[in-house]
C-alpha cells in the first residue's frame, strides 16, 4: 500500500493559518445573514446593533485583527486519510499551529491548565480540542473554529426518552435558547446534535455550529424543523445584543446520528454571531 508522507510542519502551518483567518475574517454566509437580518430587523436599536456588528467585522478583516477579543478555545474536526504518514506527532503538530497562531496573530490566550483548582493560564492557548476521524484516502481535511465561551456557557445536553418525540426535542431546544436570553451575544447560531450517545450528541452539536448557515439538513423533515425552530426563536424578542428585536438567531443547524432503542439524546451548542470557522485540505 502506498502511503503519502506529510511533514509535521505542513500540518502546523495549515493550522496556524486557519486560526488566524477564522479570527480575522467572518464567513461570507454569516455576513450575508447579518445583512439580511439588518434589512428585516423590527427594532431600530436592533438595526443599529447589526450595523455596528457588520462594521466591526469589516474593520477586523481590513486590519487583520480579531473580530472578538474572545478568540476562543481552539476546536478542530479532522478527517484523517488512512494512507497518510506524518513525520512527527500529529496532535503536537496541531497544538504547535495553535500556539503560533495565538502568539503571532495577536489572539487572546484564554485556556487554563486545570479547570477547578489551579486555573492558571497556559499562555499559548493550548491544548486544542481535536476530534479526529479516520477516513479512506491520502488527504487531511481540517475544519477549525475559535469557540468563544460567552455562548459556549449557554449550551446544554439532555437525555430525552424516545416517547418525548419531536415535541420534546423542540421544547428542549427552545428552552435552552430562552434561558440563554441576552447572554450569548445574539444573533446566535444554534447548533443541535440529536442521537448517538451523550458525548456524540454534544460533538454533533458543535459540528452543526461549524456548518454554513445557508445550508440545511439533508432530510427534509429535519430541514423543516430547522426552519420552524428559527422562526420560533425569532419570536422570543431578545434581538441583537439582547436589547430587543426580531433577530435572536441567524440559523438553527441540526446534525443527527443513529441512537439506542432506549434513548434520544439532544445537545444544543450555542454560538455567538461571530461564528468563526475555516477549513482546508492538506
Amino acid at each position: 500500500m502506498e502511503f503519502r508522507t506529510i511533514s509535521a510542519e505542513t500540518v502546523t502551518a495549515a493550522v496556524k493559518k486557519l486560526f488566524m483567518d477564522c479570527n480575522y475574517f467572518i464567513g461570507g454566509d454569516i455576513l450575508c445573514a447579518l445583512q439580511k437580518a439588518r434589512e428585516n430587523e423590527a427594532s431600530p436599536v436592533g438595526k443599529s446593533v447589526l450595523s455596528q456588528i457588520i462594521e466591526n467585522n469589516r474593520i477586523a478583516a481590513e486590519e487583520e485583527i480579531p473580530i472578538c477579543q474572545d478568540t476562543g478555545m481552539a476546536v478542530l474536526f479532522v478527517e484523517y486519510g488512512d494512507k497518510i504518514c506524518i513525520d512527527g506527532d500529529f496532535d503536537e503538530a496541531v497544538n504547535e499551529g495553535v500556539r503560533q497562531a495565538y502568539r503571532d496573530g495577536f489572539l487572546r490566550k484564554s485556556v487554563v491548565s486545570d479547570p477547578v483548582f489551579d486555573r492558571v493560564n497556559t499562555r499559548d492557548n493550548t491544548p486544542a480540542v481535536i476530534h479526529t476521524k479516520i477516513v479512506s484516502g491520502d488527504k487531511i481535511r481540517l475544519t477549525a473554529g475559535g469557540k468563544g465561551f460567552g455562548s459556549e456557557n449557554m449550551s446544554a445536553v439532555k437525555m430525552l426518552a424516545p416517547s418525548y418525540g419531536v415535541d420534546g426535542v423542540r421544547r428542549f431546544i427552545l428552552d435552552t435558547v430562552f434561558r440563554a436570553g441576552p447572554n450569548p451575544c445574539p444573533p446566535i447560531v444554534v447548533g443541535v446534535g440529536i442521537g448517538g450517545t451523550f458525548e456524540r450528541a454534544a460533538q454533533l452539536a458543535k459540528k452543526a455550529t461549524f456548518r454554513p448557515v445557508d445550508t440545511c439538513h439533508a432530510d427534509p423533515r429535519y430541514a423543516a424543523l430547522e426552519d420552524e425552530l428559527l422562526a420560533e426563536i425569532n419570536k422570543m424578542g431578545f434581538g441583537p445584543a439582547g436589547l430587543g428585536g426580531s433577530t435572536t438567531a441567524l440559523a438553527v443547524n441540526i446534525e443527527t446520528a443513529p441512537t439506542h432503542i432506549a434513548g434520544m439524546p439532544v445537545a444544543v451548542n450555542i454560538c455567538c454571531h461571530a461564528a468563526r470557522h475555516a477549513g482546508t485540505e492538506i
Partner: peptide, 19 residues
C-alpha cells in the same frame, strides 16, 4: 433586558418547557 424583549415577543410562541 427585561422590558425591551417583551416589546418584540410574539405571544404565539410555542411552549418551551420540557414536560
Amino acid at each position: 433586558y427585561e422590558t425591551e424583549p417583551l416589546r418584540y415577543r410574539d405571544e404565539s410562541i410555542l411552549p418551551c418547557d420540557v414536560p
